[in-house]
Design a binder for these strands. Sequence first.
DNA 1: ATTACTAATCGCCGAGTAA
DNA 2: TTTACTCGGCGATTAGTAA
Lengths: 235, 235
Amino acid sequence: MTAPVLPPTPENGRPRPKGEALAVLKVLAHDGADSTPVLLTSREVGDRIGVSQQAADRYLLALERKGLITRSLAQRRQRLQLTPTAMEVLRAEYHTYRRIFEGPARLSFTGKVASGLGEGRYYLSQPGYVVQFTERLGYSPYPGTLNVRLTGEALRKAPLIGHWSGIRIDGFQASGRTFGGATCFAARMNGRSCHLIHPDRTHYKDVVEFIASDCLREKLHLKDGDTVTLDLEES
Amino acid sequence: MTAPVLPPTPENGRPRPKGEALAVLKVLAHDGADSTPVLLTSREVGDRIGVSQQAADRYLLALERKGLITRSLAQRRQRLQLTPTAMEVLRAEYHTYRRIFEGPARLSFTGKVASGLGEGRYYLSQPGYVVQFTERLGYSPYPGTLNVRLTGEALRKAPLIGHWSGIRIDGFQASGRTFGGATCFAARMNGRSCHLIHPDRTHYKDVVEFIASDCLREKLHLKDGDTVTLDLEES
DNA sequence: ATTACTAATCGCCGAGTAA
DNA sequence: TTTACTCGGCGATTAGTAA
């Protein structure tokens, strides 16, 4: 387990700003504050979302503290800009609504088979994981992950998966150390069923890992550098 | 001004249920409670949105009172179902997020020229309206609306416009009576610039009205029953 | 087990106001 | 003007329970 992809969404739990604060983000996003700063007074923001100037100001302060917006106070109006984190929060919301009206999301992209660090075998063999895989994925995975390196368009598409609802694998303690959680997503690699596995803590941005009941590398006759097609559908 | 289209959204202001209640609607929608009832306990709902069983219960009670959900209490679990009104609320949210990430919405549909009741001339001649049209649309409209009757697919698409941000025309009092407000949306009819005008209070569901600086019927050589193509883009 | 009431607490909102 | 603090009040939340 090395790989990644997925989202800036902090912890794969929920970092959701509640109600009214979200309304502020929506207003700023509507005005295009994701790309360029927007000039607004706290009163204007308050009017837009139906609260007082004081409340709006508190929201802005809180959002700044949480790293969701950046502010530079000009004398007359403050320059407000959304951070990438805020855009992720909004995108997560967008995704839940999109799912309601458009149905489960689908995603297809290609990547190249890459060598992992060999850690996959160690992690996937941990009983604490195996029992969960067996119960929640329906199989005991081959002890090794197949890593796929993404480029170009796939690099932009794959992070969207982070907002999907996936199959949760919980972290646990064993042998005096901590094993982190992960989220799995049903996938097909060159048509063969497998799961994309996304560890909660991950640093890489261009590699995604896959597991399956059998050794994908053998069954699909893959070697490093081969291009594979991945198809995913939200659960 | 006779026609309509547009949304069940009660008053064209905002009937927005605040924060936490919306979260409940999202949970229910995610579980498909728009088409068939879903079985959930108040505790489950509370867990899903991160509040206590008591709070969740109060939200459910409030939502039922507001006509956003229907409940039938079984002994073990309550059957919850979203009303069409609730789906409109959710769709409005969806639209604001969609606009953020996908840009202004576009819509094209066709309809047939229809005769109005001739009221358009009277309303559009009211100085209270004319001054607003001139200021906000940039022209003084020809005193008469062109009505277009929608059928089939257009009937499903047009109501989505109700969620768009449009050009507001406020209501006013004059001659001892009340003139209602409306919202205008830039449009093209067979390529010619005009505005779709949607009165706040409107009963018809299959007729939409258009205004323009000149007489559309004359300029486009239209007669009743002719098919016209409408193209709209959100402001 | 549920739903949902009551009571006590908590936290948020907006008024007033300083800078 | 603005931002943003303090404070009083009230609405919302949760714990405890009844049904």
